[in-house]
Design a protein around this nucleic acid. Structure first.
Lengths: 111, 111
DNA sequence: TCCATTTTGGTACTTTAGTATGAGCTACTT
DNA sequence: AAGTAGCTCATACTAAAGTACCAAAATGGA
């Protein structure tokens, strides 16, 4: 308040700043964590399969039944890029085609 | 046996024949019943979607990640027939493509 | 800064998938 | 017997998917 001492105002400012930074930090963290469940189990499993975060993201879209073009539009990428990711996924999951990849991913419980 | 009467042999033959037919009948019946789980829940759901038994069978193979050709070989059918079944499934499940059909089928808990 | 990985994208092809249409055959129902 | 639904298969296309190979940015550490 206007009648408050300078010290009080500084403390309030510091507290506000700290919470602001906490807010920024948590938000930034959430952007990464949200890719994978809180447990991080999936991230561990995909890591062991050498599946990159982007590839995993594409895998989830494939499992939703989207076409390469639809995934490309959704993630703001070219269809060419999606094909690359899917092709890499097939190798890493040892799948013959995308439907097979979906089945394997379910078996491994990574989606 | 050689010492048996003609009547006895005829009776044995008839009994054998009857059991043979029972065996054939039960086997044929089992081929149909085994298509769906004992509960019949899936059969009810697929019926409401107007999905035929054969189509449902193909759907399960699609979900396993098999190609049309592989499904054809597994079920001793032509690839052409599988295409027809899959095409009909897409309409009945309101799916754009087979991966989409898999996702929908999971949602409906019919596979 | 240098290195390794990831991400992105392109071209050129081959292979699967999917659609449209027609047709014969069987089994069940009215 | 006639109709209906299900199953089978074919031909002829169009559309996706997938492969192979290459290459330029971006990213994140060592």
């Amino acid at each position: 308040m206007v009648t408050g001492s300078m010290d009080t105002e500084i403390i309030i400012a510091i507290v506000a700043f700290v919470f602001f930074m906490v807010g920024v930090y948590l938000h930034k963290k959430s952007l990464h964590v949200d890719q994978f469940p809180k447990t991080g189990v999936n991230r561990e499993k995909t890591k062991s399969l050498e599946i990159s975060p982007r590839e995993y993201e594409v895998l989830k879209e494939v499992a939703l039944g989207l076409s390469n073009k639809e995934i490309a539009d959704k993630l703001f990428l070219s269809e060419s890029t999606i094909k690359t990711h899917v092709s890499n996924l097939l190798v890493k999951l040892n799948a013959k085609r995308r439907t097979h990849a979906i089945q394997i991913a379910h078996e491994l419980k990574i989606i």
